[in-house]
């Protein structure tokens, strides 16, 4: 889950960069927001994986 989270963080960054390079106007802003959303999802996954790990370790 942690690996998936970091992969989502990187993917979100990729979406943002692609939006800046390939789009313009409202579409660019929208896809940048979407990229940030993907990053947020990745961050939540990483946090959850660490919480589960600490629960396991007691």
């Amino acid at each position: 889950m942690k690996f998936a989270g970091f992969l989502l963080l990187l993917s979100g960054c990729g979406v943002v960069i692609a939006a800046v390079a390939l789009l313009a106007g409202v579409a660019r802003a929208g896809f940048v927001a979407a990229g940030l959303g993907v990053e947020a999802l990745g961050f939540v996954l990483v946090v959850r994986s660490h919480l589960l790990l600490e629960d396991e370790q007691g």
Binding site: L9, L10, G12, C13, V16, V20, V32, L36
Partner: peptide
């Protein structure tokens, strides 16, 4: 938007890299 792109790079690239 430029500042937000920078934030996305910090969270989406620098955090995974440093971790």
């Amino acid at each position: 938007l430029a500042q937000i792109v920078g934030i996305a790079a910090l969270l989406g690239f620098v955090l995974p890299l440093t971790y």
